[in-house]
Design a protein around this nucleic acid. Structure first.
Lengths: 214, 214
DNA sequence: CGCTAATTGGACTAACTAGTCCAGTTTGCA
DNA sequence: TGCAAACTGGACTAGTTAGTCCAATTAGCG
């Protein structure tokens, strides 16, 4: 039985679920700050107040815990963008989303995107982690795409526009902008990248939709 | 005397300089693949064929070596983009640069940008590394800006365009695109991000320059 | 040549790492 | 109530880590 099967198959009491969740939260926070390799299980134990046997009771090994952290951070990141991410179907909504991301970046004191950081650190070495993170980006991108799709169906985006590609471009701008913002400790690069991406969407809006927005 | 002063002040024989450089190269390669925390000094020793005393003879500690790796990777990345990076002063040049980056991404089998990876891993924990990496991005961005500046002075970019911001947007697209490409193991996100950024530059070209390009 | 400093080899340490093991406690359920 | 399973505590191990130390060798230079 693999570690993953274990955590899925075995039954958990309410207390057990709480403990397990507390471990993931603590690990997610620590890994956000110091990376996977920079976070030892000892500090995870200390931060979550559990013993080593508890850690290995709930997770097969460190890699299994990291996969759970990926899932948790993906949830957190998507939730943090609500309600914007759920309805990116107008230029105004895109701009509000942009502002929210910029604000979020300031709130996290420019520590970047947790999912992006994990992707950067793990994609080379762990195929399994890489696939999970690719899935995270896919979900994120799909959420963006849904809004653009709506715009296109409403006739606000030209029919030649490709919502899938536009969504990927927007997500790329978020990631690139956040990385530069984190490194330079300024939110300017993030703002510039996002504005560019939104302009790119605007450039594929129909004349009708453009005139309506004034 | 700090480690940095040591390596700057002390004289190096030709043999010493070679050894020192070999260590940095080996460390750069290993860190590119496995990250800083994932690369032990023991494997650096093995890969470069030096002993521990040599390592500590040339570098004060691991952090000092990492700073040299940052510098080396910055050089490598900038050189790899030549001759394009030296003259990004037309839409054609930008497109050729785009193709070169995509090709480079394929050549490195989608392992991403060495500078970007270092920035992602180190920016939170090491102010010193973060500043050096911010410097790397600044140089990179300036090189891009120089070409755009030329275009503007020639009247090919509208006077309201801001070459500095455009350069940052282009660099952000490179970084975001490379991260998504690395995670999804596809060069599509990179191509999409770069095309968007180049369109963004094109959208700020003067009518004269646009007609000329046909 | 001969001296000084650069360079090299490798044993050694103290701290930390992921992971194991077993014994004890709590909980849900028949 | 009693029992099986979930849960917890913490000692323990074997391997790895960055960093130290000293002795030996090599190279430049007057």
């Amino acid at each position: 039985m693999t570690a993953q099967q274990k955590s899925q198959t075995r039954s958990l009491t309410a207390r057990g679920a709480t403990t397990r969740s507390r471990i993931i939260d603590a690990a997610a926070d620590l890994i956000y700050d110091h990376g996977v390799e920079g976070t030892s299980l000892d500090v995870v134990m200390a931060a979550s107040g559990v013993s080593k046997s508890q850690l290995y009771h709930y997770f097969g090994d460190k890699d299994a815990l990291v996969l759970e952290v990926i899932a948790r951070q993906t949830e957190r990141v998507l939730e943090a963008q609500q309600p914007h991410l759920g309805a990116l179907d107008s230029l105004a909504a895109l701009k509000a989303w942009r502002d929210a991301i910029v604000a979020l970046n300031k709130a996290t004191r420019g520590r970047g995107c947790p999912v992006g950081s994990l992707a950067s650190e793990l994609s080379n070495d762990s195929q399994s982690a890489r696939k999970h993170l690719a899935g995270s980006f896919a979900v994120w991108s799909e959420r963006i795409e849904q809004g653009l799709d709506k715009m296109q169906k409403r006739g606000e985006l030209v029919s030649s526009a490709e919502p899938h590609d536009l969504a990927l471009a927007l997500l790329g701008a978020v990631q690139g902008g956040l990385l530069l913002a984190k490194t330079t400790q300024s939110s300017r690069p993030l703002e510039i990248a996002l504005d560019m991406a939104i302009d790119h969407v605007a450039s594929q809006m129909t004349r009708r939709a453009k005139s309506r927005r004034r």
